[in-house]
Computed example of a mutant assay.
Amino acid sequence: MAIIPSYPKHIVSVFAYLTNSKDEVLLVKTHWRSDTWELPGGQVEEGESLSEAVSRELLEETGIVIRPVGITGVYYNVTKSLLSVGFYAEYVGGKLRIQPKEIKEGSFIRLDESNIDQYITRPHMKSRTLDAMRQKCFVPYEAWDTNPYSLLTRLDC
C-alpha cells in the first residue's frame, strides 16, 4: 500500500499600511469584525503573487490603487492556519469608496501610539499596525515564475 503524503494546508492573506498626504492611515471595519478598525486586505487567490493580491484587495475593498513598497511583517494564526503578510504601500490613485458587501466603514484616520487603542481593539491587529508604523526598512520580497525562471516582482529597502 502506497503512503500518500499529507501536505500542510494554510490560508494566506495580505494587508496594507497606507497613509495619505496628511499622514493619516487607511483603516476599515468589516461586517464580521465591526468591533475594531483594521488595515485593509484579504485572502490571496490561487496563482496570485502576494503583491498582486494586496493591490487587488485594496482596490476591491476601498477603490484605491496602491503600489506595494515592502513587507512590514509576517504573522501566523495557529488556530486558523492563517499566514498573514503585511505590506507598506504607496498611494497611486482612486478615491475612497468602500465595497459594502464586506466593508462596513472605511476612513483615513490620524493614528499614533497614543490613540491606537481607541480604534484597533484586537491585540493581533494592533501589533501588526504598530509594526508597520515603526518600520524603517522593509523585508525583501520576491515573486518568481519558474518555468522558465523569471523574476516578476522584487521589493526591498
Rank of each mutant, 00 (worst) to 15 (best):
L27V: 13
L26S: 10
W32V: 15
K29Y: 07
K29E: 07
T62P: 09
G41I: 09
G41Q: 05
E38N: 06
L27P: 11
I64A: 11
A89D: 03
E24S: 07
G106Y: 08
R97P: 05
Y91A: 08
H31D: 06
Y88C: 09
V28P: 06
E90H: 08
P68A: 11
Y88G: 04
V74D: 02
Q99P: 09
L58A: 01
I64V: 13
R67P: 04
E46Y: 12
E61R: 10
E46V: 15
K95S: 15
D35E: 12
S51I: 00
Y75R: 04
I98E: 08
G93T: 04
G73K: 02
G73D: 07
L18V: 11
W37K: 05
A53S: 15
K104H: 03
Y76M: 09
H31V: 10
E90I: 07
A53P: 05
Q99T: 09
K22H: 10
K101R: 13
I64F: 02
S55P: 07
D35R: 05
L96N: 10
E105K: 11
G70I: 11
E52A: 13
S81K: 14
G63M: 08
Y88R: 03
S51G: 05
L58G: 01
L59K: 06
S49Q: 03
S81Y: 06
L27I: 10
Y88W: 02
Q99E: 15
P100V: 11
K22Q: 14
V65A: 09
E46P: 09
R56I: 10
K29P: 09
G41C: 11
S84V: 07
Y91F: 15
G94A: 04
D35C: 03
K80P: 02
V44N: 02
V69C: 04
R97I: 13
D23N: 15
Y76L: 15
L59Y: 14
L59A: 11
P100C: 09
S49P: 04
E46D: 14
G86C: 00
D23H: 11
I71P: 06
L82M: 08
V74F: 02
L83K: 02
I98R: 12
D35Q: 05
G94D: 04
E45A: 10
G86R: 00
D35S: 10
W32N: 11
I66A: 03
V44S: 05
K104Y: 12
G106S: 12
S84T: 14
T62M: 05
S34G: 08
K22N: 14
K22D: 13
G70C: 12
V69M: 15
V85F: 00
G86T: 06
L96I: 15
V28R: 01
K22C: 04
V25T: 14
T79Q: 07
L59D: 00
N77R: 07
V25S: 01
G42P: 11
Y75G: 10
E45P: 03
K104M: 14
L39T: 14
Y88M: 12
L82P: 05
